[in-house]
């Protein structure tokens, strides 16, 4: 892994944690009543973080899975009983997303019975 790639990774991960701890802006008509994450300390900090995020998006190396192929349970022979899954039920249809596969892609974009969902962890 090149030095630059490694640096980018670190920035991305640390940036993610920083974002996880701060909700940069609250409010908006659809925001929940109790928005509890501290607001950014300064506008400069907020603008800086957002700019950094756009740079990172430009160089995103994670590979989200979109509309993944599905197989029946009987064909999922690579899964072990104790493997973790995120199970989703939509309109009576069950789908399982193995956690190790999600952890590789970070996000799975799928459509079940016409309803678009994003699976993440």
């Amino acid at each position: 892994m090149g030095k630059f790639t490694r640096l980018l990774l670190w920035v991305l991960i640390l940036g993610g944690i920083a974002y996880g701890g701060y909700r940069l802006n609250t409010g908006g008509p659809e925001a929940p009543a109790s928005a509890t994450i501290p607001a950014p300390t300064t506008d400069e900090a907020r603008i800086g973080r957002f700019a950094a995020s756009q740079f990172l998006i430009e160089h995103d190396r994670f590979l989200a899975a979109t509309d993944p192929a599905m197989v029946p349970a009987a064909e999922a022979t690579w899964l072990q009983p104790s493997d973790e899954v995120l199970g989703v039920l939509v309109s009576g249809r069950a789908r399982a997303y193995p956690v190790p596969m999600i952890s590789y892609h970070h996000v799975v974009n799928d459509v079940i019975e016409g309803i678009p969902i994003a699976v993440t962890y």
């Binding site: 993944p68 599905m70 197989v71 349970a73 064909e75 899964l79 009983p81 069950a94 399982a96 193995p98």
Partner: peptide, 13 residues
Amino acid sequence: WRQLHPDTAVMAQ
């Protein structure tokens, strides 16, 4: 999950 939903689909490799 499989026990409760035998007809489940699974994200394929």
